[in-house]
Nucleic acid binder design. Structure first.
Length: 299
RNA sequence: GGCGUCGUGGCCGAGUGGCUAGGCAGCGGUCUGCAAAACCGUCUACAACGGUUCGAAUCCGUUCGUCGCCU
């Protein structure tokens, strides 16, 4: 029996949550969240996790099941999610996945290459070098250790540079030597559904949603996390700007405007990521569900 | 009404005769364990008209507008 994974993608605030619930109810199946922030239980308002009544209408997974104090990243998410998918597919041929994190969706659907675990101290050390000696020093290191990656990655980007270097240093092999290996085939059929809308309309929705978050208590939520502001999980739109306000750097009004602006930019990047994926079938954000249902039932 | 001042791209802002400042916003893009992150690219404007000059955003004149002072 063929197993299916229906993935709903698109920019933030476009209506993915509502559509995914409709699909899950139609197929009578569970929902897996594929969102790089919604699995942190300390961040509820700012990450727009589904409302309690929404969660009640379908079984969700990977929503608020981790802590911002636990280290986590795509690799772990891919592993955990594949296990969850296999588990759920034993009982039900259908699963819905929703998320706006392109890299995470890609990891689940297509897989990442295997990279060995690297001691976290190596990254700490590389960050210190970046701070003290500048990016040129790291670029020179990569040129020596892995000239192939030096040519292929964005060496102006500290994150990418440090990742390549930490793998080289931690494994004793080149970063490039691990890449582009055959990936384990997925044993389910992937159907991707994208939601899109007019740009201005999308921006209006984002602006409104930020106002709603503020009314729902985002400021208090952020204040409660302020002391942990350096944690990676809190390098997140909606929190960083409020932390700056708490620091006395910017006014509350300006912080809110910044949250809106940065959310719009985030949405733009999400669109850029998803638009190049030829396997996505696109629907307008206010599509009649009957139309989506027809599409799903054809699969 | 008179005198003076200023008028640069969506916004801010440098530039006093030849060498497309820069920043912000916007837009486009990159993406293999920090991804709501990080990074890259892009926008050739000088209020209008006329004049001087080989050459004007820069000099001169007129007009329009700004702001200020005076009557």
């Amino acid at each position: 029996m063929t197993k299916f994974l229906y993935t709903v993608v698109g920019p933030t605030a476009i209506g993915k949550t509502a559509l995914s619930i409709q699909i899950a109810n139609h197929l009578n199946c569970d929902i897996i969240s594929c969102d790089s922030r919604q699995f942190y239980k300390e961040m509820r308002i700012g990450t727009a996790v589904p409302e309690p009544q929404e969660l009640a209408t379908a079984q969700h997974h990977f929503i608020q099941n981790r802590s911002i104090f636990d280290g986590y990243s795509v690799g772990g998410f891919e592993r955990d999610t594949l296990l969850k998918i296999a588990d759920l597919h034993q009982e039900n041929p259908n699963i819905v996945m929703v998320g706006g994190s392109g890299l995470y969706v890609n990891a689940v659907l297509n897989g990442l290459d295997y990279f060995p675990d690297v001691a976290p101290e190596i990254r700490t050390q590389l960050n210190a070098t970046l701070e003290e000696k500048g990016i040129e020093n790291l670029q020179e290191q990569l040129l020596k250790l892995d000239p192939e990656s030096y040519e292929s990655i964005a060496v102006d980007n500290p994150h990418r540079l440090i990742r390549a270097l930490e793998v080289c240093i931690g494994s004793g092999k080149t970063y490039s030597s691990f890449k582009n290996k055959p990936k384990a085939a997925r044993n389910f059929k992937s159907i991707q559904i994208g939601l899109r809308s007019d740009r201005q309309l999308m921006y209006d929705r984002i602006n409104q949603r930020v106002d709603i978050m503020i009314n729902n208590g985002l400021i208090d939520e952020a204040r409660g996390l302020y002391e942990h502001k350096s944690l990676n999980a809190l390098q997140t739109v909606g929190y960083r700007e409020l932390f700056l306000h708490f620091d006395g750097e910017i006014s509350l009004e300006f912080a809110i405007e910044e949250i809106k602006k940065n959310t719009r930019r985030f949405a733009k990047r999400q669109i850029t990521w998803f638009k190049k994926d030829p396997n996505i079938t696109w629907f307008d954000h206010d599509v009649n569900f009957e139309e989506v249902k027809l599409f799903i039932d054809r699969q």
